[in-house]
């Protein structure tokens, strides 16, 4: 009755589709709460910083501050929705609900589960990332043709952070363990990405460190989509995000496999 051929590829589209469908069914159940959390938080941040700091700082790098923050908040929305979902949901599914054990009893491998889930979360993050941009339009951000690329930037960044989230989730034993990740990794990434202030005001060593922050490359790409593409620099930003996504994905597959297959 089943359709598994005698030769098996490492990642089969039919397995990815099955993982996706499961994610989609769960999403349909919980889309309101998940969308609220993922979209409203960056939007509140945008409004708060925009109106708060916006009164003190009129322009940054020639851009009205609220538009500067609005474009930066896209990356925040992507980071939060991808990384947090990957960390908490996959720990719940692995350790408490043991859904992965159930899936692995079917003809699906760990690599397909991880890949299917990070692709789904990446796509979702790409959609959620557009919300702050829409709000920024209300605050006078002028639409630009290259903005159609923003969801793609969000998807690429989202895949990387979803993979990173799954990696941390696989390393964690309890939800409390993830507090270290939030405080020690996510928060610094979030703050030193150029979302709320330009990095060129930071000390040299911190500016250098920021170059290794994937979120910084996402922020730069989104700003360039909004205020003018810079092809040379943007290719490097895209390259950095691809390297990050591939590295995080492979590490997530490896660590999750060591957790699930004993």
């Amino acid at each position: 009755m089943t359709g598994v051929s005698s030769t098996v590829r490492r990642i089969e589209p039919v397995s990815l589709a099955a993982v996706w469908i499961r994610e989609w069914i769960v999403f349909v159940y919980y889309w309101r709460t998940r969308t609220f959390a993922a979209v409203v938080e960056p939007v509140i941040m945008l409004v708060a910083f925009g109106f708060g700091f916006g009164k003190l700082v009129s322009h940054v790098e020639g851009i009205p501050y609220i538009q500067f923050v609005g474009t930066g908040a896209v990356a925040t929305a992507v980071l939060f929705s991808a990384a947090f979902s990957a960390m908490f949901d996959s720990l719940y599914k692995r350790r408490y609900q043991r859904v992965y054990d159930a899936m692995l009893a079917a003809p699906v491998d760990v690599e397909e589960i991880v890949t299917g889930e990070v692709l789904f979360l990446g796509m979702r993050a790409g959609v959620y990332g557009v919300a702050p941009l829409l709000v920024a339009f209300c605050f006078g951000l002028p639409p630009a043709p290259a903005m159609v690329l923003v969801p793609l930037v969000g998807v690429l960044t989202g895949i990387g952070f979803a993979s990173l989230g799954m990696l941390f989730s696989a390393a964690a034993t309890t939800f409390d363990d993830l507090s270290y990740v939030i405080s020690g990794v996510i928060t610094p990434l979030f703050l030193v990405a150029g979302t709320f202030f330009p990095l060129n005001r930071l000390p040299g060593w911190l500016r250098t460190a920021a170059q290794f922050n994937p979120l910084y490359h996402c922020v730069e790409l989104v700003r360039h989509c909004a205020f003018g593409l810079r092809p040379g620099a943007d290719v490097l930003h895209v390259g950095a995000l691809i390297v990050f996504a591939v590295l995080a994905w492979r590490l997530a597959v490896w660590r999750t496999r060591t957790r699930l297959i004993v």
Binding site: T2, G3, M103, P107, V108
Partner: peptide, 14 residues
Amino acid sequence: RDVLSVFARLYRVP
């Protein structure tokens, strides 16, 4: 029904 439907896909039922 969704539990079964998800696993029908995972088990590759046509």
